[in-house]
Computed example of a mutant assay.
Amino acid sequence: MLAIHAGTVLTALFSILFVLLLILVALYFLGRRMQKKQEEQQPLIEANTMDVSILVIDKKRMRIADAVRAGLPEQVRAQTPFYLKLSKLPIVKAKVGPRVMTFIAEPKVFELLPLKKEVKVAASGLYIRSIKSVRGGAVSEPPAKKGFLSGLRERIASGRK
């Protein structure tokens, strides 16, 4: 029969705990460094922000490779870190004057952008930062998403399965 000593188990647990602690410390310092980089870039983004009138043609979440094929510059793929290559970006295809362009939108703005309407936005290069106004109406808030439990309660209350 196999006998496992308590000392062996404790040594393994402490070594696993030590490795997890090292990973946690490394992630903390990496996060602080990335936050500093973002704070340095924020004034540049604000300085390059312009109000632009666009007609939203289409919007969807796409992977970076698909977005480059849809019209984003190749630089976007080249400058994206490896750990974000598979993430999905909120991509907006819009007509700016006579040209059809592809933009990356901020996630909150992406939800509010109406399709097939003319919108005045604050854009910094290919990045849509905020909505200023919508022609023919105000910016409508998207309906709040219901959580799993609230949806379940509603189904029970209405008698549906």
Rank of each mutant, 00 (worst) to 15 (best):
residue 93 K to I: 12
residue 86 L to R: 15
residue 59 K to I: 00
residue 98 P to M: 04
residue 51 D to I: 06
residue 57 I to N: 05
residue 38 Q to G: 12
residue 95 K to T: 04
residue 83 Y to H: 14
residue 93 K to C: 10
residue 101 M to W: 11
residue 94 A to G: 04
residue 57 I to C: 00
residue 101 M to I: 10
residue 48 N to I: 09
residue 89 L to G: 01
residue 59 K to E: 04
residue 101 M to N: 15
residue 93 K to L: 12
residue 73 P to R: 04
residue 52 V to Q: 08
residue 74 E to F: 07
residue 40 E to Q: 06
residue 75 Q to S: 15
residue 97 G to V: 08
residue 87 S to N: 15
residue 65 A to S: 09
residue 67 A to D: 01
residue 33 R to I: 12
residue 100 V to C: 06
residue 94 A to W: 00
residue 32 R to T: 13
residue 76 V to W: 06
residue 50 M to I: 09
residue 86 L to G: 08
residue 99 R to N: 14
residue 61 R to W: 10
residue 78 A to F: 00
residue 61 R to L: 11
residue 35 Q to M: 09
residue 78 A to Y: 03
residue 71 G to L: 08
residue 75 Q to W: 06
residue 83 Y to D: 15
residue 35 Q to A: 15
residue 70 A to V: 00
residue 39 E to A: 14
residue 81 P to F: 02
residue 41 Q to W: 05
residue 98 P to S: 11
residue 88 K to A: 10
residue 62 M to S: 06
residue 64 I to E: 01
residue 80 T to I: 08
residue 100 V to T: 13
residue 60 K to C: 00
residue 57 I to V: 05
residue 81 P to G: 01
residue 52 V to N: 01
residue 89 L to N: 02
residue 75 Q to I: 12
residue 63 R to T: 13
residue 86 L to Y: 10
residue 82 F to W: 11
residue 87 S to W: 05
residue 39 E to M: 15
residue 61 R to N: 14
residue 71 G to S: 04
residue 87 S to H: 11
residue 83 Y to K: 09
residue 41 Q to L: 15
residue 82 F to D: 13
residue 76 V to F: 14
residue 47 A to G: 03
residue 33 R to K: 13
residue 51 D to E: 11
residue 39 E to P: 11
residue 39 E to I: 12
residue 54 I to T: 03
residue 72 L to D: 02
residue 78 A to D: 13
residue 76 V to G: 01
residue 84 L to H: 13
residue 77 R to I: 03
residue 58 D to I: 06
residue 38 Q to N: 15
residue 57 I to T: 02
residue 32 R to E: 14
residue 82 F to L: 09
residue 70 A to F: 10
residue 69 R to I: 09
residue 54 I to S: 03
residue 37 K to N: 09
residue 77 R to Y: 14
residue 48 N to Q: 13
residue 53 S to C: 03
residue 43 P to A: 02
residue 55 L to N: 09
residue 32 R to W: 11
residue 86 L to H: 14
residue 58 D to T: 13
residue 32 R to M: 12
residue 32 R to Y: 04
residue 36 K to D: 10
residue 46 E to H: 06
residue 39 E to L: 14
residue 92 V to G: 00
residue 55 L to R: 08
residue 59 K to S: 04
residue 54 I to Y: 01
residue 78 A to T: 12
residue 78 A to W: 01
residue 64 I to V: 07
residue 80 T to L: 01
residue 68 V to P: 03
residue 35 Q to L: 14
residue 84 L to M: 13
residue 64 I to C: 05
residue 51 D to C: 00
residue 59 K to G: 03
residue 44 L to Y: 12
residue 39 E to W: 10
residue 65 A to Y: 03
residue 41 Q to H: 04
residue 41 Q to N: 11
residue 89 L to C: 06
residue 72 L to V: 02
residue 33 R to Y: 13
residue 82 F to Q: 10
residue 60 K to A: 09
residue 82 F to A: 13
residue 51 D to Y: 07
residue 36 K to E: 11
residue 72 L to K: 02
residue 93 K to N: 01
residue 52 V to R: 10
residue 56 V to G: 04
residue 63 R to L: 07
residue 52 V to F: 05
residue 63 R to W: 04
residue 49 T to M: 03
residue 60 K to G: 08
residue 43 P to K: 06
residue 54 I to W: 05
residue 37 K to A: 10
residue 99 R to Y: 06
residue 79 Q to N: 14
residue 45 I to E: 10
residue 33 R to E: 15
residue 35 Q to F: 05
residue 75 Q to L: 15
residue 62 M to Q: 04
residue 88 K to G: 08
residue 64 I to F: 03
